[in-house]
Amino acid sequence: MTALFDWLHTVFIEQFNFWIVLGFVAQAMFMMRFVIQWIASERVGRSIVPVAFWFFSIAGGSLLLVYAIQRQDPVFIAGQGLGLIIYFRNIWLIFKEKRRDPTI
């Protein structure tokens, strides 16, 4: 049991700095996209993806990418980098569609 407490202390206390705070803020922003999607879906009674979902995806993904670069984690960098391309593409498609049909 002591080994577990030592590990928890090392991971959550000794390493605590600005980058850990940024990582938690980024993760919270990224998580908000699911909260927004859930609330929007509950309101209409079916599954939908509101535009705010993509903005939270971009904000959280960008911060997580910065965090991953600072941590020098190639798996995390690749995952967030690819995700950002997809999020920006979805925003582009939404705005392109709204320009064609302003009633959307």
Score class of each variant (00 low, 15 high):
19 W>K: 04
20 I>M: 06
21 V>R: 00
23 G>A: 07
23 G>H: 06
23 G>Y: 07
24 F>R: 02
24 F>T: 08
25 V>W: 04
25 V>M: 04
27 Q>Y: 10
28 A>I: 12
29 M>V: 13
29 M>D: 06
30 F>P: 07
31 M>Y: 03
31 M>A: 14
32 M>A: 07
32 M>V: 14
33 R>Y: 02
33 R>L: 12
33 R>E: 05
34 F>H: 09
36 I>G: 08
37 Q>S: 08
39 I>H: 10
39 I>R: 14
43 R>V: 10
47 S>T: 15
48 I>E: 12
48 I>D: 13
49 V>T: 15
49 V>E: 01
51 V>K: 12
51 V>R: 13
51 V>N: 08
52 A>L: 07
52 A>N: 03
55 F>C: 06
59 A>V: 10
59 A>W: 03
60 G>P: 04
60 G>K: 06
62 S>K: 04
62 S>G: 08
62 S>V: 08
63 L>T: 01
64 L>V: 06
65 L>R: 03
65 L>A: 05
67 Y>W: 12
69 I>C: 10
69 I>Y: 12
71 R>E: 06
71 R>F: 02
75 V>E: 12
78 A>E: 11
79 G>W: 04
81 G>L: 00
81 G>V: 02
85 I>Y: 00
89 R>C: 04
90 N>Q: 14
93 L>R: 13
93 L>S: 09
94 I>A: 05
96 K>D: 05
98 K>G: 00
98 K>R: 15
99 R>K: 14
100 R>Q: 14
101 D>N: 15
